[in-house]
Design a protein around this nucleic acid. Sequence first.
DNA 1: AATTAATTTTAGACAAATCTAAATATTTGT
DNA 2: ACAAATATTTAGATTTGTCTAAAATTAATT
Lengths: 220, 220
Amino acid sequence: MTLSEEDYIKAIYHLGKGLDQAVSTNSIAEQMDTKPSSVTDMVKKLSEKDLVFYKKYKGVLLTETGRLSALSIIRKHRLWEVFLVDKLDFAWDEVHEVAEQLEHIKSEKLIDKLDAYLGNPKVDPHGDPIPSKDGEFKKSVKRLVTELPIGSQGICVGVNDSSVAFLKFLDKNNISLGDTLEILDKEDFDGSLSIRVKGKEMRISEQIGSNLFLEVLEKD
Amino acid sequence: MTLSEEDYIKAIYHLGKGLDQAVSTNSIAEQMDTKPSSVTDMVKKLSEKDLVFYKKYKGVLLTETGRLSALSIIRKHRLWEVFLVDKLDFAWDEVHEVAEQLEHIKSEKLIDKLDAYLGNPKVDPHGDPIPSKDGEFKKSVKRLVTELPIGSQGICVGVNDSSVAFLKFLDKNNISLGDTLEILDKEDFDGSLSIRVKGKEMRISEQIGSNLFLEVLEKD
DNA sequence: AATTAATTTTAGACAAATCTAAATATTTGT
DNA sequence: ACAAATATTTAGATTTGTCTAAAATTAATT
């Protein structure tokens, strides 16, 4: 599979969003910043290779092979993102461009070893799930810290209140977007929460918790 | 610079071996497993871009820009090799193919951070020197352990005596090719050596030392 | 339901990197 | 120094992925 083919497969997967619905030529062209006629050409090629179902004028849909290829690329992309943030200390919003390149490196052994080295992470620094080797993964959803039960674990992905005071609080407590946060306990009396971030336990008020979004895996 | 251009620049560098001597079309073609006519085409393109000097029928020579580009690619290649061996536990002879892909990833920040993460290594797992960011490096030479002075440090790259007994000794003492070895002390009486490998100190006989090759950096 | 608007495909062209076959230049051997 | 052998370049073709412009199909609107 060429680099370009991989990019198309990934784009079709993302546009399809797991839905069993055909993706339009124009939407692919827009997503990939290319022309619809180029998409038609490539889609024919992918169809030849049985990576997509394609019927003229009717859009395109991944085959099972195509879907697994897409998940394999996404797996690589997200594992590299974890590497860049956890090991090389990139910020969560700096990794995408580099991961776009790294995801095309071809070596199954490399990915297996990288996965193990990173501790078999289940989510990337944006909280998105990392598919397993055989393409399994849980969906993730965005929730306020206060909406989650004790024991939940997720990635900090956004704030409700972007006031200076709130952002300063996060900074002072060494909480960054992309960090893993675990909810250890809740106090009924005042709604305050005991949490762990970067291995450090701390207590936060209900107000803080109701302004911080986590991306968490859905339970099955 | 395209992937293919980078491959040519690297090949020309290696064939030129730092010598100030023109590299022939045929030798490039052989090295790159391609046809001489293809080389001619590419070499014209590289010449347009001022990466090489080229005169018809007279071979090709890197410009200073071309030389620095080559060293930048080699730097990336060797840093990734260190990563694969030191962090992902690849064997030293498994890394080349993957590093050939990784060397083309474009991100200066990535390489800076990778370099720091690996502890700014000066040599790769084959004992070859890693050029600095601005293209400086020392040459390396292959020497028997017994030929080196106290304080020397190098990478295990080969054996003189490939008898089962000798290889078993290395294995039992957890010494692998690609490991860094430091000479701590020498005993005048019997020529035995005190060394450190993988952080562990041990004593080896002169016979062992005279059968193990290290790749060491030349002193300047 | 007919016409207009939007989408999609086709046809033909182009750039990059390669190839084959033929032409040209250089080197070697006597 | 000249013929033969070798190396290199040119010319023209091919593949991949892209593009533009025009034609065909589908969707929307009145």
